[in-house]
Design a protein around this nucleic acid. Sequence first.
RNA 1: GCCCGGGUGGCGGAAUGGCAGACGCAAGGGACUUAAAAUCCCUUAUCCGUAAGGAUGUGCGGGUUCGACUCCCGCCCCGGGCACCA
Length: 841
Amino acid sequence: MKEKYPFQEIEPKWQAFWHERKHFHVNTASPENKYYCLMMFPYPSGTLHVGHGRNYIIGDAVARYKMMRGKRVLTPMGWDAFGLPAENAAIKTGTHPRTHTLENIARMKDQLSAWGCGYDWDREVTSCLPDYYTWTQWLFLKFHEHDLAYKGRAPVNWCPSCATVLANEQVVDGRCERCETEVDRKELEQWFFRITRYAERLLNDLDTLDGWPERVKAMQRNWIGRSEGTRVEFTLAPRDDEKTDESSVIPCFTTRVDTIYGCTYMVLAPEFPGLETLVKGLPEEQAVLDFVRNARRMNTAERTAEGDKNGVFTGRYVINPYNNERIPLWVGDYVVLEYGTGAVMAVPAHDHRDFAFAKKYDLPIRLSIQNPEQSLRVENMDEAYDGDGIVVDSPPFSGMPNREAIAKMTGYAAEKGFGGAVTQYRLRDWLISRQRYWGAPIPMIHCPACGTVPVPEKDLPVLLPEDAEFRPKGESPLASSESFMNVDCPKCRQPARRESDTMDTFVDSSWYFLRYLSARDDTRAIDTETCDRWMPVDQYIGGIEHAILHLLYARFFTKALYDMGWVHFEEPFARLFTQGMITKRSEKDGLLYKMSKSKGNVVDPAELIREYGADTVRLYTLFIGPPEREAEWSDQGVEGSFRFLRRIWKRVYDHRDLLESARDIRPELDRMNQPERDLYRKTHESIRRITRDLEGAFHFNTAIAQIMELMNAVDESGITADSPEQARAVFREAMETVILLISPFAPHIAEELWTELGHEPGILRASWPEFNEAALYRDEVEIVIQVNGKVRGRVSVSAEADKESLEREALEHEQVQKWIEGRTVRKVVVVPGRLVNIAVS
RNA sequence: GCCCGGGUGGCGGAAUGGCAGACGCAAGGGACUUAAAAUCCCUUAUCCGUAAGGAUGUGCGGGUUCGACUCCCGCCCCGGGCACCA
């Protein structure tokens, strides 16, 4: 055994060992003791920094811990390999994105193994290769077959820099999530997935996900945005010029139907369908058209910025079905088409937006809810009252508490046939078309005669053409490849054109966790039987940035596949853990940032591994703080973790004779003296504590602190090779425990020392230690004595001491006497084994 | 505005309603060394005190309790999500 901790030698050795012994391979034929431990598969950017590493290190620690607890752990890995960066690099350098991507994958695989992370590489999936995207396309066809994929014309988000459309989920504050360019609105024909059909189930089933962070569930609830309200159909008042309208009703959605008698006008969204015909030929027509054109020119950010509200009168009127009142119809830029019906009943007295609009355009304000103080007068109002109260001036509902009136008035609408209760969602259908090259082609064909025709399953995959022009032009690069575009219609055999858009990469990642279970199966996408055995994922680990996007889409896919009968579970991820970001102070401005090249604050793991070893990087990453929270990387902290590992190594080296001599001696509690008992107890306390830290929440930081404490206790024990037999036995057990407990975190050193101690190689196959209840017992305990809640003394007593004797002992304590002298003892609280509190006055 | 988190030493952070600050980092002092590195030992919340000891202290203000970082009520600040969503 080497004296100096030879991390550079042992780490590659054990990595090769795990690989050769296939320690991370698992047979999914039986579900017995299964544990599916999944990490979000990475985009192959080429280089991982220590911030990315947190994800894999946590996952690997969990996998190793569960293996030692006897689970058959599946930890697969793969690559979310389609996407813009590779394509952008291709545009710049001329290298094909595939070449670039595959090189990056090779590099990242090496990085992951250098970290000591083990995976079942036989199940590797790479979403950009035909053996994967064939099945992504197949799933698209299934979705199409079940009316979950459709082509529709709609105003969509267009990123001018990426030259593609984006899903709602990919627009953040009116900007492209990727490149932060302001997003424009465009009206285009695009492919959508009908996720809104699942809104209710996606929302309700969140309640079944006990193993998910509340935060993520809250974000999804917000995003789905369910709100219950009332649909009210207003009748369009006939035109003065007696021309007829296409439709005579304008429905609107409201959550506050109780205020409808205060409705003094109605507002349409500028994009409201049929608006042009509504105003055709009226004196107001030109003003309306100008207003609409202007509103449409604005990008999403400008349009949605709260503040000034603009609008224009249409020259038309609608009838409020509750009181048959004729009210003016306006167009306003604060009404959004996509939500509700694109029409809003305006109640300025009870809605702050309507209030501002009415003030600006001098529209009437009428009270219909009186506050409990009865103090509201329209003349005095300088803001809308949106609180509860009593319905007024609303016959026959006047006098009702407004909450009650909502139900009554909604019922009334249903009864009279002009509306009723409806549930509205904020969630929109998922736009999946992308006008880019590096994605899975949408397997559809446009035939002049037959229309849009799906590619027959037997013709899959629709391969990406090799001769496409990448440079983005607003049209998909695939359109530039004639060999790709020209195809015969599968129905009528006449010349037709392929769909030239590719799929959003979030489609690829919505089902990869199913594919891992049958990654090499070239006959079908999903192996239903194996999925039934091994799904759901027991533990999913990834970044919080996917709280909505990926995690919502994957849930949607699972539910859709459930309905189609391909899987028999509705939720894919039983437990979810989201780790916090690792930040580092920028040397430029001294501020904290997420690690990124542009901020110049990335820490390269390769350098650290060379200098300290992978175990140090792992240990530090896990010790840095609670794993779900953000943490600041500290170079000194790394040093500290290194020192600790080196210290463990040195103890084993220095005491190798002692450890060897104790090989066959079992610790026996009755034969131990006090210091031996203390170390024995500390050992078993540590096992208990650490096991508890790892079950449920992953408290790696406190688990590691506890190992450090145990190590401190080993050093303080003063046991040497000359110590008596029991001392040596206890010492050996303590050191073995340190090695076992640290092995999920620092597996290389643990493997090495484990064999050094004479065990068979392969600590992963060793069992996690169990604590001995008897070891935890103390016969003497220190009791704290408080006077009025303040500690005034402490006393050592037998663990069995009863309340009476503890109270006596406390009252007689010398220091304590000083504090109770001359005062009245009102009460004495005794908590056996802990403290005595004497209340005096 | 609504919904989630969070606020504890110089720093990262610990604490089933029961000794606040485990563990680590940093800092200071010492041992070893010709010297340095490494290692080991000691100190380290704040204030008063030579000390024994005392007072204060977990964002702020109240409350419950023998006892509150922890529970309840009302605020403040920081981070995140949603938002002219009717």
